[in-house]
Amino acid sequence: MTLRNLKGKSLIIYFSLMLFITFFSKTLFYHINPKVDVSKPLEKTISVTIELKDEDLSLDADGNLYFDDTVIAEDTDDNDIFCRVTCSKADNIDVSVCTLERKNGSCYIVNSKQISYIEYDNILVELIIGTKKRLFIEEASVIDGKYVYIVYDEVNYFGLKHRVKKIPVKLGISEDRFVEVTDGINPEDLVVTKCDRNIQDGDIVVLSLD
């Protein structure tokens, strides 16, 4: 093909090229950009407990168990507190659910069975003072033990794109294959759980669901 022929066909070449790019740009977009699996953090309701051990507890002359009521916040209603007492003596373990009664700056544990705690070797009191929602993510989502990638939407004139953002997180307890995130993410965030190649902060990604 001579240069003159090429010049004559340049308009056809231009539109053919644009047609070609149009057909392949979407495929290319999905092929070039990393494909990621995402999930929202699991929200679990967990009890907020205060554990009282022997050194925190006292016994009065009648064998009643009590502790300093400064342990519990002043505005906490005693009726909302769930109290579980685990007593052990040799091989015998006794677990009982009790109520609390405040008297002269002390908080008495009232047991319906009227057990005398003097007989027991070890006593553990668990005060469940409320519940708290905590976020759990898959352990595989955590990078270097302190980062996660979350996916955010970028909307512009040409539509919606997904990008990833690397954010530091504080981790809490682990449960099964999940780990608690105490700080860094919100319940509505989409956390990257799996990725088919390495990603970096700000990369455009394709969601596996798309």
Partner: peptide, 16 residues
């Protein structure tokens, strides 16, 4: 323009 914002071609082909 052409890959990351492939919807650009909607407008291009509208013009055409």
């Amino acid at each position: 323009l052409m890959v990351e914002n492939y919807r650009f071609f909607i407008f291009f082909w509208n013009s055409v």
